[in-house]
Design a protein around this nucleic acid. Sequence first.
DNA 1: CGGCCAGTATACCGAACGGTATAGCGCGGC
DNA 2: GCCGCGCTATACCGTTCGGTATACTGGCCG
Lengths: 188, 188
Amino acid sequence: MDNREIILGRALELWSQRGYDAVGVQEIVESAGITKPTMYHYFGSKRGLLDALIDERTEDLRNALAPAASYNGDLVATLESIVRGYFAFARENSALYRMLLAFWFAPADSDEYRAVAARNAAQHESLERLFEAAAKQHGNMRGRQKAYAATFLGMINTYAGLALNGHATLDDQLVYRATHQFMHGIFS
Amino acid sequence: MDNREIILGRALELWSQRGYDAVGVQEIVESAGITKPTMYHYFGSKRGLLDALIDERTEDLRNALAPAASYNGDLVATLESIVRGYFAFARENSALYRMLLAFWFAPADSDEYRAVAARNAAQHESLERLFEAAAKQHGNMRGRQKAYAATFLGMINTYAGLALNGHATLDDQLVYRATHQFMHGIFS
DNA sequence: CGGCCAGTATACCGAACGGTATAGCGCGGC
DNA sequence: GCCGCGCTATACCGTTCGGTATACTGGCCG
């Protein structure tokens, strides 16, 4: 493994455990067994390292929203496959998802927010378009695409957070339950 | 207003805008028009300032969970009054709620997490007991108290986050809609 | 009056912050 | 053989970090 990948891996590990601001460049390069100029050669700045980390390691998460774009009228199946994609990603990239969760409501005037703002906006738009399309079949949903996109993602993140703390398991059963809860509430 | 209150107010303002780690003691005391020893006289440390801020300004939020403790069999009404309490608090203490949201998924090994850990645990326990009690009437809920407590709070926070960014209004209509969505899903 | 004490300021501490100037290394191409 | 270049280290920059030693002030209590 080359130094670039080692740096990315160590930064991810440390930031997910203690936060972006709390872990400095010095500690990351020490943990990676290299020195600062090497890190600055590859990434240019601390912020550049964060951007690279997020850009390069969230591709699978972008793909998880593909079902939203190819909605075919079966809303439950579409939502289920999105939840399945997110849960799989969170399972296989737990440190990264932990960090993304911490950035979820980061202050607007912070590097963390700026690093994920575009990604999050794209996620929301994709889901809003899905609920917009679904509203044509289900008239009573109209006008609430934004709220549904946000609460759908919020539910996914809530369950992911539970799982990261050992209070849930992101398996197919939870995919079904979560989707069913979102569609029909907690009574059924 | 005495210096102690001024310090609390300025710390809240700055932290909610840019994050706890990103704003240092020096900037807070300058913004408050005093010097560091004054702040250290009242709060002992940066962390002590954070603890005091959270302890002293979240009393109304603790009260918002009172309906959970006096559950009388009407789950919808209980949840509605809890949501109403949270929404009112978020409306009237927007900067504080912004900060609490940023701390929601803070790394476990961070001052932010430690500052809100006890509060959040108490919140969850209170809600879990509520859903536990409700499960006696609604058998199909059994065993999911933890998940319901988490997703209920998650939905509240998601809507609060939307409102803080101008995408929603935390009024009685949204109280009704949010509760109804949690109970019966997005279809009705 | 005298003493105490809460509150505040000046000036400072060592450590860590993000970032860089400079120089050397090894390796592929000419 | 040597030039260029990608990569890496030593050593350093100015600034800010959280925190403090010391001293002064004003007001209250005896």
